[in-house]
Simulated scan of single mutants.
Amino acid sequence: MDQSVPPSVVEAHRPEQAPVDHPAVAREKIGVLVANLGTPDDTDYWSMRRYLSEFLSDQRVVDYPRWLWQPLLQLIILSRRPFASGAAYRSIWNTDKDESPLLTITRSQSEKLSTRLRAELGDSIEVSFGMRYGNPSTDKALKELEEKGCRRILFFPLYPQYGSPTTATACDQFFRQLMKRKWQPSVRTVPAYFDEPGYIEALAASVSERLENETHQPSVVVASYHGVPKRFLEEGDPYYCQCRKTTRLLRERLGQAEDEVVTAFQSKFGPEEWVGPATVDKVAELARQGHKSIAVLSPAFSADCVETLEEIEEEIRDAFMEAGGEHFIYIPCLNDRDDHIAVLADIVKRELGGWI
Rank of each mutant, 00 (worst) to 15 (best):
V127Q: 05
E258C: 00
A295D: 08
S79N: 13
L37Q: 04
I125Q: 11
H13M: 06
A345D: 06
A168V: 03
Y199G: 02
R90L: 04
P218C: 05
I312P: 03
N213Y: 11
S91V: 10
V62H: 03
E322D: 15
T308I: 03
S186H: 10
R253D: 05
A24T: 08
E209R: 13
A223F: 05
S293P: 00
R80A: 12
E311G: 07
G255K: 06
E28N: 15
C305D: 05
A119D: 15
L121G: 04
R231K: 15
C150H: 09
E201Q: 12
F83Q: 14
Q70K: 07
D259L: 05
P101W: 09
E111S: 12
A323S: 06
S224K: 02
T104H: 06
D44H: 04
C241F: 11
R80E: 07
V187L: 00
R181K: 15
L117Q: 06
K282H: 10
Y89Q: 05
L250G: 02
N213H: 15
C333K: 04
R253A: 13
G255Q: 09
Y51R: 03
S128V: 04
R107W: 06
A87Y: 13
Q266V: 08
G353E: 15
S110D: 05
Y51W: 07
L68M: 13
H216N: 14
R152A: 06
T106E: 08
A204V: 13
D98V: 07
D42H: 09
S224E: 08
A141C: 00
F174Y: 11
A323Y: 06
E307S: 10
E28G: 10
Y240P: 00
K148S: 14
H13L: 12
K182V: 14
E201G: 05
K180Y: 06
M179R: 12
L52G: 04
Y193S: 06
R66M: 05
R49A: 12
E126Y: 13
S108M: 14
E201K: 13
L334H: 01
T43L: 01
K143N: 13
S114W: 08
Q184H: 11
G270V: 09
I200P: 02
R350F: 10
L37F: 09
L352E: 12
Q256H: 09
K112T: 10
L103W: 10
E54R: 10
E54C: 01
L344A: 05
I329T: 15
L113Y: 05
I105H: 05
L103Y: 10
L142S: 01
V283E: 02
G325L: 10
T167A: 01
Y89I: 07
D2K: 12
I105V: 11
V261M: 01
V190P: 00
R251Y: 01
G354H: 08
A119N: 15
W46Y: 11
G149Q: 10
D123G: 07
W274P: 01
K143I: 01
T169S: 06
Q3K: 14
I294Y: 03
P238S: 09
S110T: 14
H340D: 09
Y45C: 01
I294A: 03
E126W: 07
